Simulated scan of single mutants.
Amino acid sequence: MELENYKNIRDYVWKTLIGGKVKSLPVDLFELCRNLSRKPKVKINLYNYTYGFNMDLITPQMVKGKVAFTTKIFNEVYIFYNDNIYPNARVRYAIAHEIGHLVLKHNYKKSMMTVKEREAEANKFAILLLAPAIVLHCCNAIKTNDIMMICDISYSAAKIRAKSMATYEELNKYDTLALEREVHKAFQEFIDDYNNKY
C-alpha cells in the first residue's frame, strides 16, 4: 500500500474515531455506529442476522460464509454480522472492516480500484480503527498479547499491529498531526485509567 493511500485511510480513521466519539478501548462498535448515525444522511444499523430478519431482503449469497456484510435496505445501511459461530474478536474485526468500506465510500462511488485493493483498504481501516497507534503507545501496549487484550482483537490481527507498532516506536513521531492530537485528547482519561491499573 502506497504511503499517500495509507495516510488517507489513517486520516479517515482518526475522523471516524473523533466523529464517533470513541474515548476508550476496546472500541464499542455499536456506540460508534450510533454516534455516526446522528450525522445527516448517515444511518448505520448493526444487526445479528442469526436472530432472524426478513429473509426476503437478504439472499443466501449475501450470508454464505461471511462473518459480516453490508447492504442497503430502504435507504438505510445495515451491517449484518454472525456472532453465533465466529469468535467475538473476528466479528469485531469484520464489522470494523465493513465500516471501513462505508467510510471510504467503497460501496457508493464508482472507482477504478480492484476488489483486492478495496479489501486491502478496508482491512487497513479496521486495524487502525480497533487499535489506534497513539492510544497503544500512550498505554505502552505495543506487544501482541497486550494489543490483543486492550483492543479485543484476534491474535493474528494483534501480531500484525504489534509489527507496525514496532516501526512507529522507532520513528517516535506521535502527536505531530492535529487529528492525532485530537484522538489522543479524546482518549486521555482512558489512557490515564489504564496506566494507573497496569
Rank of each mutant, 00 (worst) to 15 (best):
I9M: 11
R34G: 08
F187D: 04
I99R: 07
N195A: 13
M148Y: 01
P60G: 11
R92G: 12
Q188C: 09
I127A: 02
K39T: 13
R90E: 14
A162C: 14
A131F: 04
K143A: 12
K105M: 02
I153M: 07
C139R: 06
K23F: 11
R38A: 09
I18M: 02
G52C: 10
L25H: 01
K41H: 13
I18Y: 06
E31P: 03
K124A: 04
N145D: 14
D56N: 15
T71R: 07
C138S: 15
T71H: 05
N48I: 12
R90G: 04
N140R: 15
A133T: 05
A120H: 02
N195H: 15
I73G: 01
Y155I: 14
G52M: 08
P132S: 07
K39P: 08
E180I: 03
H137M: 12
V103S: 01
P60L: 11
K116L: 10
P132L: 01
N195K: 15
C138F: 14
K163S: 10
F125E: 00
Y108L: 05
R92A: 13
K197E: 15
T114P: 05
T167L: 15
F74T: 12
E119V: 01
V13F: 03
M55E: 11
I127K: 10
L136P: 06
I150S: 04
N107M: 03
V135T: 01
E98N: 00
E117H: 08
E98V: 04
A162I: 12
I142K: 09
I58A: 01
D175L: 13
F74Q: 13
Y12F: 04
F80L: 00
Y108C: 03
E117I: 02
D192W: 08
N35I: 05
I147P: 09
A120Y: 02
T71V: 08
S154H: 03
T176G: 10
E98L: 03
I134W: 01
I147V: 11
A126C: 01
Q61K: 13
A141K: 07
A133N: 07
Y86Q: 01
L171C: 14
C139D: 03
S111L: 06
N54S: 05
A120N: 10
H106I: 02
H184R: 14
G19C: 02
N75I: 08
N172W: 05
L29Y: 13
Y108I: 06
Y49F: 09
A120W: 10
Y155R: 15
V63L: 01
D175Y: 12
N84Y: 13
I9A: 12
Q61Y: 07
V22G: 10
F30L: 15
D83K: 08
S37M: 07
I79W: 00
N145S: 14
A133C: 06
K185W: 03
K64P: 11
